[in-house]
Design a protein around this nucleic acid. Structure first.
Lengths: 210, 210
DNA sequence: CGGTTATTTAATAATAGTATTAAATAACCG
DNA sequence: CGGTTATTTAATACTATTATTAAATAACCG
């Protein structure tokens, strides 16, 4: 009865778990609430995933993957460097806009439980390396052509991530302190995206006297 | 016996509480551990502060104040705008360096429990207004003198906060992923500070053709 | 159908944490 | 000193959470 929803139970639990973990983080999420949101008995959550930790890993790994890949898509395109960089920042920003809770969850879990990082590290090491190697080459060529000043790939990615992520990390804070409503946030985000692109490109200008 | 440490018990609990809250955040901190770290009975924590929530508020308010004031000190000095801005970013960065755990705690608690913001808002509203009004005037004058392009104070503070805070928020993540050790982090931080100042000043350049 | 396995539920053990109560001890003051 | 108040502790109620066990139900297959 009621929709013949038998074997996708596991999938439904995962969905509910993702939502709850994104809202509350690992510590404040409970398997009881995940069960409630799924519409099943609490025991069932443990039946399928044994422990809260294992359930979390299933959810978390996928989210981290999404996040990392948000850097990856653009980087293999064949475009002039400044154009590619603009695309990269833009794409990354838009990904964050569509997944606003992801940065905080990742930050929260990696900060409060650094062990999690180690597991992720091996898993994503190849992709990360690929991103860095691509970016390295691109920077090198662009520098040769005099399009940009020299910069370490790490520094560049760090700047981009900082500026983009902050918009969404700090959202709840500014929301309240500055009385920023939902519609306003959309505008603010749009401005910030442009501002971020400007700042990054500006900061790469080849040489400039003080 | 043992040091005659009677009436500063309350202070000792506050100290221990601050350390534990900074390490673990509200949710994962326990009054039991705070008592253990203080070296007293767990009941005593409740005797002095009644609830974990009230204890947290005592600690948290002070930390937020420190953070906000890290913006405030420089802003009332009488200096050329670009010099003042440099000082501001520098001072703010150095404050964060000395209090690396503060940004995450504030972010964490304001994100997971937005109600906290409201209490803080009234308390710090005057200081925040003062900072904004100072900055507004400074920007206005600097624009008139052709020293910088026009920018909303909010945007400027947002950029500064984003860039500076990220260095310390993302530290645990990059630490592990990139194998950044302690000594290396000091270098990385130094570079980032300079990079951040550069980026902000650059982005304020009066006019510039594409 | 009948038996086997998979899924779901109810009951509950085990743990950990917050908070209260009442008793013990120490500090204070006339 | 003796009595009052403040501080500290032990015992414990209460709640919430994860996880297990055993029983009930449903699905599957010969």
């Amino acid at each position: 009865m009621e929709g013949n929803n038998n074997k996708d139970m596991e999938e439904k639990i995962l969905k509910a778990a993702e939502a709850v973990f994104l809202e509350k983080g690992y510590a404040l999420a409970s398997t009881t609430e995940i069960a409630r949101r799924t519409g099943c008995n609490q025991t069932l959550v443990h039946y399928y995933f044994r422990t809260k930790e294992k359930l979390f890993e299933s959810v978390f790994g996928r989210l981290v993957e999404l996040f990392i890949l948000s850097f990856h898509g653009v980087i293999s395109q064949d475009l002039p460097f400044r154009k590619k960089l603009t695309n990269l920042i833009d794409t990354h920003f838009e990904f964050l806009y569509e997944n606003q809770q992801i940065p905080f969850l990742i930050l929260n879990e990696l900060t409060t439980n650094p062990n999690r990082i180690l597991k992720l590290k091996e898993r994503f090491s190849p992709v990360v390396k690929e991103i860095f190697s691509h970016l390295s080459q691109d920077i090198e060529q662009a520098v040769k052509r005099g399009e940009i000043r020299t910069i370490a790939p790490f520094e560049l990615l760090f700047s981009i991530a900082s500026l983009n992520i902050s918009v969404f990390l700090l959202r709840p804070v500014f929301n309240r302190i500055m009385n920023v409503e939902n519609e306003q946030f959309q505008n603010l985000a749009r401005k910030r995206k442009i501002e971020n692109i400007e700042m990054i490109l500006h900061s790469l200008t080849p040489l400039q006297e003080k």
